[in-house]
Simulated assay, not measured.
Amino acid sequence: MEGYQKVSIRHWAEEDRPREKMLKKGLSSLSDAELLAILIGSGSQKESAVDLARKILNDAHNNLNELGKVTVEALCKKYHGIGKAKAITIVAALELGRRRQLTVPLQRYQIKESKDVFALMHPLLSDLHYEEFWVLLLNQANKVVQQFNLSKGGISGTVIDVRLIMEKALYQHASSIILCHNHPSGNKNPSKADIVITKKLNEAGKILDITILDHVIIAENHYFSFADEGILQS
């Protein structure tokens, strides 16, 4: 059409750009074409990445299984703006999707009591000559959705960032948290610093509606549980 100019994605409203839309509204808000456009990255002078993605999907009858059969060579030959690198990215992403369907989901470890924490963390912490502080994030069924090493320290302590723990818990939509660290000295009893940080995290959890279920201290072949000793209730 005379006088018509294609509007680049970067000139779209921010909420309509695929990457920005994904960050603001989540993956489920994107159409297949928008997801494919993210893989493509950029279109050509004649059409945006989204327009190009719609064309590719249309030729595959808007069926991702059909698109998964398309080769790198076919994509490069048929579509202006699709070079080898973009074609490889599309084919690789579709192959990952296929393999995901074939993968058996991981069984998440369920925490029912303090000895379950000990069984999970003892192999990681029992032989260390320095302290490590770990955090377990759990869902509503008390299954571990993520475990991460928050800090490493010297023989007598580590540095704990309450905000970082809560930030990760919120990001993972965790319902509860279990804290765990080791005492290389072999003394399982909590230090004053252990008690202070546990209470501080417990208070932060109450504000954010994230329960601190326990803090387990591992010392060689035995452990101390804040929950078992009723300290978290004080």
Results as ranks from 00 to 15, higher is better:
L137W: 03
A74C: 07
Q110R: 12
D51F: 00
Y130W: 05
A74D: 14
S151M: 02
E73Y: 12
R54M: 10
F148M: 08
N63H: 04
F148S: 14
G68K: 02
L150C: 04
D127H: 15
F118I: 00
I56Q: 00
V135S: 00
L64W: 02
L94V: 01
V50A: 04
I88A: 03
E113F: 02
K84A: 08
N63C: 09
F133I: 00
V50Y: 00
K112D: 12
V70I: 11
H61A: 10
L52R: 01
D51H: 09
N139W: 08
Q107F: 12
V104T: 15
Y130T: 05
R99Q: 11
I88E: 13
G153S: 01
L137M: 06
V70C: 08
E73H: 14
R99T: 12
L128G: 05
Q146Y: 11
L128K: 15
A92K: 15
D59A: 07
V144C: 05
Q110E: 14
I88M: 13
Q101S: 14
A53W: 00
H80D: 13
L102K: 13
N58T: 09
K46P: 03
N63V: 03
L64I: 12
C76D: 09
A119S: 11
P123W: 01
V72C: 06
S44P: 05
E47C: 06
V145T: 07
A60D: 07
H61S: 14
Q45M: 11
E95F: 02
D127Q: 14
Q110S: 11
P123Y: 02
D51W: 01
I56N: 05
Q45P: 07
A93K: 03
L52M: 11
C76R: 13
V144W: 01
I90Y: 03
Y79L: 06
L124I: 09
T89N: 07
G81V: 08
L75Y: 10
L94H: 04
A92P: 00
P123Q: 02
N63P: 04
L138P: 09
R99H: 06
K77Q: 15
V145I: 15
V70F: 06
I155E: 10
W134I: 08
A53G: 05
K55H: 10
I155S: 13
G154S: 08
Q147C: 09
C76K: 15
S44K: 04
R98F: 15
Y109V: 13
L150D: 05
I155M: 10
D59H: 09
L52G: 02
E131G: 07
N139S: 01
Q146D: 15
H61Y: 10
F133P: 03
W134V: 05
S44L: 05
N142G: 05
R54D: 14
K112G: 15
T103I: 12
A93F: 13
K55E: 12
I90K: 03
A119T: 10
Y79N: 10
S151D: 03
N58Q: 13
L120H: 08
F148C: 04
K84C: 11
K69H: 07
V70G: 04
S48A: 00
L96I: 14
I155P: 07
P123C: 00
V91D: 02
T71P: 06
A141G: 10
S48E: 05
F118V: 00
Q147V: 09
L52A: 07
S48D: 09
F133R: 01
N65E: 15
V135N: 01
R100D: 13
N142V: 13
L75P: 06
S44T: 15
K77Y: 14
A141E: 13
H80E: 14
L150A: 06
L128I: 04
